[in-house]
Nucleic acid binder design. Sequence first.
DNA 1: TATAGTTATCTATATCAATAGACAAATTTG
DNA 2: CAAATTTGTCTATTGATATAGATAACTATA
Lengths: 249, 249
Amino acid sequence: MVGRLAADSIERRSGVSLWRQIADKILHAIAIGDFVENTALPPEVVLAERYGVNRHTVRSAISALVQEGVLRAEQGRGTFVLSRKRLSYPIGARTRFSTGLQGQTTERHIVLLASSIEPASQRVAEGLGLARGAEVIRLETRGEADGRPVSRAAGWFEARRFAGIDAAMAETGSITASLARFGIDDYLRQSTVLSARHADAADLADLDLQPGAIVLVTVAINVTPDGQPIQFSESRFPAERVELRLSAL
Amino acid sequence: MVGRLAADSIERRSGVSLWRQIADKILHAIAIGDFVENTALPPEVVLAERYGVNRHTVRSAISALVQEGVLRAEQGRGTFVLSRKRLSYPIGARTRFSTGLQGQTTERHIVLLASSIEPASQRVAEGLGLARGAEVIRLETRGEADGRPVSRAAGWFEARRFAGIDAAMAETGSITASLARFGIDDYLRQSTVLSARHADAADLADLDLQPGAIVLVTVAINVTPDGQPIQFSESRFPAERVELRLSAL
DNA sequence: TATAGTTATCTATATCAATAGACAAATTTG
DNA sequence: CAAATTTGTCTATTGATATAGATAACTATA
């Protein structure tokens, strides 16, 4: 018996335009190696036939991907796949931003975008083992590697215990280094919950994405080695640039 | 300083229609508890103003979600959120479909959709430690819980060692039970790589999704306790119905 | 029962998305 | 150079998407 391999037709009047669907198909084809880096795509006419749409619709899709920096079109020659490997971000017991991307990138750092003190919401309070409404410090950060944004995170810390962590973070550019100032030499990831959704307007701006992009979302709790919760965080990763590699916890 | 909390505007001419974006927003709002199960949504006029679109556009979004079984509209009364909690699928060293969903569901099983023998592709061969082109058995399966599809997976096994595993799978409806027939009493997850993308036509059909839906994708390798690779798999989960909970590996 | 609040339906108009065809411009190949 | 191939541009038409306004139908409540 033969399994159906990607019937791969497109959906009309779905709320997602055909050009967007085809752009996604091309991205997927690149991701699985059907279209190879630094080689030409099939001609527009062929793609139009393959996907069962008009050539102009294919052109709209290609145009969007050229904007996104995935393809380069050259009149008379063809349309070429630019190289853009996805970063593989490790998630495990000792998940650290910078060390996790060593070897894949030459440069990476965290930028502190904003910070504030606020009462803990239900889930933050639960995660940190605090009373609802207790004061917490929120740090909004963006992770960048080789000049490209690869993550956008919000982290919450108990305000009383970690007063001044915002300044430490701005100065050091590292969560690990900032926590060290409060006597935290090591911390472990207690839990990670993962989901995915379309990027909202904030994601688009923060992560330099195009409308319709997908973000991976992790909600995690970090604890000291003896199990004391110190950080609750929600991170967003652009799915087109990052994959998450789950390592031993 | 104050961090921007979800500017949450909508994107025009993005390839995703406004009604689809608003439908996604409503789903998200339900997911994070802004809209509560079994209570009414704000009136259409209010939603239209909040999202900055015409009332009719909001109605299109609501109409789609009614079709998807997320909402129920009652003339004169309001539009209500039906209950549909996301399943939390655990991923860890001993990831098992059925046991992982115990407690959250009353019934779950795996359906064998198709099977075939084929030469190993590059990545499958690498994952299983075989020569490229070596014969492998592919099992196409769907996981269902309480009558709803929650996963769609392809699993590859070395053909010589696991000849007949397709029949075993069809009979037992369990990977674990099928492997037991080949003397595999225990197996561990060696690696998991996670990504997300839009559902393609096959996903839409297999997982009973609407166009524009997002799927979480895991690529995993299972090994015997002494490290021998036995299964390479790629699974897809509907992000609107499933979240992945990473537990200790 | 009367009123306010809500969803449902209708008409009309403007813009975006998709198709269709023709031809121009650039590149490669014979 | 000529022909073939491929991307780029233009015009035109159709259907889906979005806005706007008016009114009907239904529900709850004072």
